[in-house]
Deep mutational scan, measured.
Amino acid sequence: DAPDEFRDPLMDTLMTDPVRLPSGTIMDRSIILRHLLNSPTDPFNRQTLTESMLEPVPELKEQIQAWMR
């Protein structure tokens, strides 16, 4: 099983494109984008959230890719 820090906190699946929300939570980009289609909010604190506020986490993405090899 993947380490917890590699798993999306909402869907508990392996992240492939991790992004940091303004709240500091790291999620998979595809999952948070799907959530934003229904509700333009951070799913953990209900603060306003837009796609432009998502910050890529390239170092975590590299760690996940290395773990998958």
Rank of each mutant, 00 (worst) to 15 (best):
D1T: 14
D1H: 14
A2T: 12
A2D: 05
A2K: 05
A2C: 15
P3G: 04
P3V: 04
D4P: 15
D4S: 15
D4L: 15
E5M: 13
E5Y: 14
D8P: 03
D8F: 04
L10A: 04
M11F: 11
D12K: 15
D12F: 15
T13F: 07
T13K: 07
T13A: 06
L14W: 06
M15T: 01
T16S: 11
T16Q: 12
T16V: 13
D17N: 08
P18I: 03
P18A: 01
P18D: 02
R20T: 03
R20P: 01
R20N: 01
R20E: 03
L21I: 04
L21Y: 00
P22E: 01
P22Y: 05
P22G: 02
S23A: 06
G24M: 05
G24Q: 04
T25L: 13
I26Y: 04
I26R: 03
I26V: 11
M27L: 06
M27V: 08
M27R: 02
R29T: 04
R29W: 08
I32W: 03
I32E: 00
L33C: 11
L33Y: 07
R34Q: 13
H35S: 06
L36I: 09
L36Q: 00
L36K: 00
L36F: 06
L36A: 00
L37H: 11
L37R: 14
N38E: 13
S39G: 07
S39D: 13
S39P: 01
P40Y: 09
P40L: 12
P40R: 13
P40G: 11
T41E: 08
T41D: 07
T41S: 09
D42L: 03
D42F: 04
D42N: 06
D42P: 02
D42I: 03
D42V: 02
D42W: 05
P43W: 05
P43K: 00
P43F: 03
P43I: 02
F44W: 12
F44S: 03
F44G: 02
N45R: 06
R46A: 13
Q47W: 10
Q47N: 11
Q47T: 15
T48A: 14
T48R: 14
L49E: 00
L49R: 00
T50P: 02
T50C: 09
E51D: 08
E51L: 12
S52T: 11
S52R: 10
S52W: 12
M53V: 05
M53Q: 11
M53P: 02
M53E: 10
L54E: 01
L54G: 00
L54V: 04
E55H: 09
E55C: 09
E55V: 15
P56E: 12
V57P: 02
V57F: 08
V57Q: 09
P58N: 09
P58S: 09
P58K: 09
P58Y: 09
E59G: 11
E59W: 15
L60D: 00
L60K: 01
L60Q: 01
L60R: 01
K61A: 10
K61F: 10
E62K: 14
E62A: 15
E62Y: 13
Q63G: 05
I64K: 00
I64T: 01
A66H: 11
A66V: 10
W67T: 03
W67V: 02
W67Y: 10
M68G: 06
M68D: 07
